[in-house]
């Protein structure tokens, strides 16, 4: 698998406080990588390290296969766009002037594409309005447009929907999906608003107290969070045989417990099991979402 970003036991310590502790994460090309963690878990610190705003205490990372200690990392970074914490915009400039400024900083020969970018983020009609008078959502979209100057193929968005109203959240979500689907841009999004991430992400990385506790794809998460009936029986071998006969998907957890991924006719199931000398001890419906999955993973409440 091609990875845009790979980190290897990355650490960042502030005196005795370990903001990041041996973080290893892998972002596949073309993914929308949801970086999930509580406030203070280390999400922004990791993003700052990747962007070169801070230096790791130990460990390393590779961006497009180029190590952070390599001088060519600056070239790799030029293929990347980022909105770290707050959008990087000049408040006294218009949206168009902000984009032109970014074009100059990137050394692009002309301003072709500025209008297209403004259109892409829905800011084409802002005219001479200065960025300081924009709503939070507009600023966020302008920040993303700035990050998109120079056609990056990796976009880092740190808490992009924080503080946005529902309309702003939808706008940013649709923009990210559009960028990923239409321009094949790999996106790393850090957030603690899990319901929103669940609508976007193709891959997840869960961080807690500076450590990556789990990395998984959206499919794997869906499997883990799938609605099921958690059954306890006297013999799961018999249960498996009966469920196979009824063409019902299941997962055997141990000799006595299994998850059944459908709602079978329970009378028929109990009768069939009884014929095979297998008793049903208990049945309970199991329904887990990303939030409860995360909380089970790290414990405690999300802040």
């Amino acid at each position: 698998m091609d990875y845009v970003l790979k980190t290897n036991e990355l650490c960042k310590h502030y005196r005795h406080f370990k903001a990041l502790n041996e973080v290893s994460m892998h972002i596949p090309k073309g993914a929308i990588y949801g970086f999930v963690g509580k406030n203070g878990a280390g999400k922004t610190t990791l993003i700052r390290l990747i962007c070169g705003l801070q230096y790791p205490t130990s460990g390393d990372f590779a961006l497009y296969g180029v190590k952070n200690t390599d001088k060519a990392i600056a070239d790799s970074r030029s293929r990347m766009g980022a909105v770290v914490e707050t959008p990087s915009i000049y408040p006294s400039m218009t949206a168009e002037d902000n984009l032109k400024m970014q074009y100059r900083l990137l050394g692009l020969p002309s301003f072709d594409g500025v209008q297209d970018l403004l259109k892409l983020v829905g800011l084409e009609n802002t005219g001479k309005k200065k960025a300081k008078h924009f709503s939070l959502g507009m600023k966020q979209r302008l920040g993303i447009a700035i990050a998109l100057c120079g056609n990056p193929d990796f976009l880092i968005l740190d808490e992009p929907i924080n503080g946005l109203d529902p309309q702003g959240i939808i706008e940013v979500r649709e923009l990210i999906l559009k960028l990923n689907h239409e321009k094949q841009i790999t996106v790393l999004i850090s957030s603690h608003i899990l319901d929103e991430l669940a609508k976007l992400a193709t891959h997840y990385g869960f961080i807690d107290s500076g450590r990556i506790v789990k990395e998984m794809s959206a499919e794997e998460l869906e499997q883990a969070c799938r609605k099921c009936i958690h059954m306890t029986v006297t013999d799961t071998k018999i249960l498996a045989r009966v469920l196979d006969g009824m063409k019902i998907t299941y997962k055997i957890l141990d000799e006595k417990t299994a998850d059944v991924y459908a709602k079978p006719n329970f009378s028929q199931l109990a009768l069939a099991l009884s014929k095979e000398n297998c008793e049903v001890i208990s049945m309970e419906e199991h329904d887990e979402n990303l939030e409860s999955f995360f909380m089970n993973l790290v414990g405690g409440a999300l802040s």
Binding site: G52, R77, V84, E85, L105
Partner: peptide, 18 residues
């Protein structure tokens, strides 16, 4: 100081300026 308060100094570094 605007470069710090608006975050544009971060942006300059992120896009590869030393």
């Amino acid at each position: 100081s605007t470069e710090y308060s608006s975050g544009t100094i971060r942006n300059k570094h992120v896009i590869g300026h030393s």
